[in-house]
Amino acid sequence: MSSPFGPAATTAMGSLPGEDMREWTKFVLEGVTIPFLPELPARPYGDMVSRAAGVIGSLALDLQPAGWRLTGGNDPRASLDQRRARSLLQQDLDVLEELAEGYEGPLKVQLTGPWTLAATVELPRGDKVLADHGARRDLAEAVAYGLQEHVAELRRRVPGASLVVQIDEPGLPAVLAGAVPTASGWGKHRSVDGPGSVDLLSRVIEAVAPALTVVHCCAARPPIEVFRKAGAGGVAVDVSLLTDAAWEQIAFAVEDGTTLYAGVVPTTGAVPKPEQAAGLLTRRWHEIGLTQKSLVDVVITPACGLAGAPSPSDARARLELLGRTAQVVGDAAEA
């Protein structure tokens, strides 16, 4: 199955440096083929977990020194922090709606997934939501419902957009491995089995259908099989980290019609030449037995989020490199 975006598609993972939402929105609407709603964690309430807190409407959370916590209530007005996170999101959507007037084409939005939130957000009396089966189910359902409403609002604000929903799950490998520390720091939370992990993630993915979905996880062995079974149409990875076993999973996924979002442009260090950025992807593609022609369906991205870039200009240089790198990959597909 060919990519829905056509050849030489590019995008980024969402997070960017600095605090100028207007300038970044202008840039991504023109600078990548799959524009996205920027996330600017340098702003108060601009990080990925705060963004999720702003999207969630059926559970109340507040911000403690240790991070976000469920308050145990059902009234989101109980949390000043949650209202501030929601207000910032609305301001960002206002900017997007203004600048994307008349836009037609793909548009991506990102949100922290249920397992990473469960491993990050605390219960009212301490420890992580991950420790409580009922609480993590309730959190996943709140994420699914909130994201569904968020997507509906985006469709109203940018009616010409074909939405792509990116679910960020950097914490899922640790959840599956039983590597998330308990509150005391002396132990680890019990690992979650494969079917259990698929269940909660699939609730979120199903909630936004028929929007295209991609699950993002920058790890050496991202749980690609979990993502596929949960119904994700794409997987986003940092290709420089992948083990041989992970590349095998990539091969199975691509052959099954999953779109690969290949993180090939590094987020730090020297900005490489396009041929350098594309080299690992094109070489491993051949080694795992995929056809060169199928490279045309790969979406080219930075290795991960760019919020840690030393400056907005550095991040822009990396985003500008995406198109040239995609062209090199496209040329390899035709070779």
Rank of each mutant, 00 (worst) to 15 (best):
residue 232 A to K: 11
residue 171 G to V: 02
residue 203 R to C: 09
residue 76 P to M: 08
residue 261 Y to T: 07
residue 329 V to R: 05
residue 121 V to W: 02
residue 36 F to W: 02
residue 211 A to P: 01
residue 257 G to C: 10
residue 7 P to L: 08
residue 33 T to Y: 03
residue 33 T to M: 10
residue 215 V to Q: 08
residue 180 V to S: 06
residue 216 H to W: 02
residue 158 V to W: 15
residue 275 E to C: 09
residue 256 D to L: 14
residue 296 V to S: 14
residue 30 E to A: 14
residue 49 V to I: 12
residue 314 D to I: 08
residue 79 S to K: 11
residue 145 Y to C: 13
residue 247 W to F: 11
residue 229 K to G: 04
residue 116 T to N: 09
residue 148 Q to E: 12
residue 21 M to Y: 09
residue 34 I to K: 01
residue 73 G to I: 04
residue 65 P to D: 06
residue 253 A to W: 11
residue 175 V to L: 04
residue 299 V to L: 01
residue 274 P to F: 04
residue 93 L to T: 07
residue 68 W to D: 07
residue 193 D to M: 07
residue 52 A to H: 02
residue 134 G to M: 13
residue 128 K to L: 15
residue 163 L to T: 13
residue 208 V to E: 14
residue 228 R to K: 15
residue 323 G to H: 15
residue 148 Q to R: 15
residue 262 A to I: 12
residue 76 P to E: 08
residue 202 S to N: 00
residue 256 D to Q: 09
residue 237 V to Y: 09
residue 53 A to I: 08
residue 33 T to H: 13
residue 25 T to A: 11
residue 33 T to R: 10
residue 64 Q to S: 13
residue 237 V to A: 01
residue 258 T to F: 01
residue 86 R to Q: 09
residue 271 V to G: 02
residue 53 A to Y: 04
residue 125 R to K: 08
residue 60 A to D: 15
residue 306 L to H: 00
residue 313 S to P: 00
residue 170 P to M: 05
residue 163 L to Q: 06
residue 170 P to E: 05
residue 105 G to R: 10
residue 188 K to Y: 10
residue 298 V to M: 09
residue 166 Q to D: 03
residue 333 A to F: 03
residue 269 G to D: 04
residue 150 H to K: 06
residue 231 G to M: 08
residue 274 P to Q: 04
residue 264 V to I: 03
residue 217 C to S: 11
residue 101 E to I: 11
residue 228 R to V: 15
residue 114 P to C: 10
residue 74 N to A: 11
residue 112 T to D: 02
residue 6 G to T: 05
residue 15 S to Q: 00
residue 33 T to S: 11
residue 325 T to D: 14
residue 49 V to Q: 09
residue 132 D to Y: 05
residue 100 A to I: 12
residue 219 A to F: 12
residue 172 L to H: 00
residue 266 P to E: 01
residue 220 A to Y: 00
residue 214 V to K: 01
residue 121 V to C: 00
residue 156 R to Q: 14
